[in-house]
């Protein structure tokens, strides 16, 4: 009797890429819900637009490459990229900008490099960076959280704002939008105000901006879920947040009047979201255990450096993109000690 043969192992675990991506998507839910709660329906519309664009372009590119697009779309990686990008965008960004950023992420940052697994840069952050440098005004015009403005954008208001640029009825743009807490802090500090003065404004919560810090908390819940499920390693988020807190702490201790507290840094902007969902993108991150610690820590340091002395209020996207470039080198120099390696045994 004849049999088909294949290389061992003849058993296969039940893990697959779809499952990995699916769990990350699931982990985004609490954070997305919080965003929706504080910033209204624009968040959801952005997500829908980005997902639609991502699927469309993946389909087109795979067709052009003469491959079957179904497994590629079904692995959920493109949808995840779209979601990560959409979450990072202001909730009233014009529709064509969202679509343009997503298309860039999928077509240029991901598929032109060969698709999933071959992209050197985090596609979502590449798309974000493109939008930020191209449309800085739109990209920094965030809604104020509903707890601050007292108004939550309804579905039709958000729809009109995104698709026809019509300002919401209640008081127009000026009443509803404002600088993000990081931006606010940055502008005020540049006006030589002290932290104590700045923080007297009503927009501040316990650590960061009101509303904002709760969004970060809910992303933290999702991130811890991923660590618990072992979908992501604890090393990158932990080292990134610890490094950010440490360096922020040093400056805060030196002069708490002009340097915000470590807690402010952790719970503002995209620090938590970035640590658990962006920096941990396995394709573009470091993969060796020691390398992940270094990779994460350097992102944390870069975030602080760019926030404090750089040209942009937040820095997760640029920090991650910069470290993406360094990841192969980090991996090369942090190869683990092989079992039975005599030379490195003393380490």
């Amino acid at each position: 009797m004849e049999f088909p043969v294949a290389s061992s192992p003849h058993l296969q675990g039940d893990n697959d890429i779809q499952r990995v991506m699916g769990q990350v998507l699931l982990a985004l839910l609490p954070g997305v819900a919080a965003l929706w709660w504080y910033f209204g329906w624009g968040v959801i519309i952005n997500l829908g637009l980005a997902i639609f664009t991502a699927v469309f372009w993946e389909w087109v590119v795979m067709r052009l490459r003469g491959r079957d697009p179904r497994p590629v779309i079904a692995d959920l990686s493109g949808i995840l990229t779209a979601c990560l990008l959409a979450i990072a965008l202001p909730p009233t960004l014009p529709w064509w900008q969202t679509m343009m950023g997503t298309a860039f992420a999928i077509v240029v940052a991901k598929q032109l490099f060969g698709g999933l697994g071959y992209n050197p840069f985090n596609p979502a952050m590449a798309g974000y960076a493109l939008l930020l440098v191209s449309f800085p005004a739109d990209m920094t015009r965030w809604l104020e959280p509903s707890v601050v403005s007292g108004h939550s954008l309804g579905l039709s208001e958000a729809w009109n704002a995104i698709f026809s640029g019509v300002a919401p009825a209640a008081g127009g743009w000026d009443a509803l939008t404002g600088a993000t807490p990081l931006d606010h802090m940055r502008t005020e500090l540049s006006r030589e105000h002290l932290i104590g003065e700045i923080r007297q404004s009503a927009v501040w919560g316990d650590f960061g901006g009101r509303g904002w810090e709760w969004v970060a908390n809910w992303f933290l819940v999702g991130g811890l879920f991923l660590v618990w499920r072992k979908v992501i390693s604890w090393r990158i988020p932990a080292s990134m947040l610890v490094a950010l807190a440490l360096i922020a702490g040093i400056f805060w201790v030196i002069d708490p009047d002009i340097h915000p507290s470590p807690a402010f840094h952790l719970f503002s902007g995209a620090a938590i979201f970035g640590a658990f969902f962006i920096a941990t993108d396995p394709v573009t991150a470091s993969t060796t255990p020691r390398g992940q610690l270094i990779y994460g820590a350097l992102i944390g340091v870069l975030v602080f450096v760019i926030r404090t002395w750089g040209g942009y209020p937040d820095a997760v996207a640029f920090s991650v993109l910069l470290m993406n470039m360094a990841a192969p080198t980090i991996d090369y120099y942090t190869q683990p000690r092989v079992f039975g390696d005599q030379e490195k045994q003393d380490e």
Binding site: P4, A6, H10, L11, Q12, N15, D16, I17, V20, P71, D75, S77, G114, G115, L116, G117, Y118, S233, P282, V283, A285, T287, T288, P289, D331, Q335, P336, R337, V338, F339, G340
Partner: peptide
């Protein structure tokens, strides 16, 4: 009980293999 191999997807460098390798190698590399 021993399914045929399926068409592999691209490596996403998730590092699962690094975690299980008893020789402490970097299987993905």
């Amino acid at each position: 009980e021993s399914p045929d191999p399926v068409k592999p997807s691209p490596c996403i460098r998730c590092g699962e293999c690094v975690k299980v390798c008893p020789a402490q190698l970097l299987p993905q590399q």
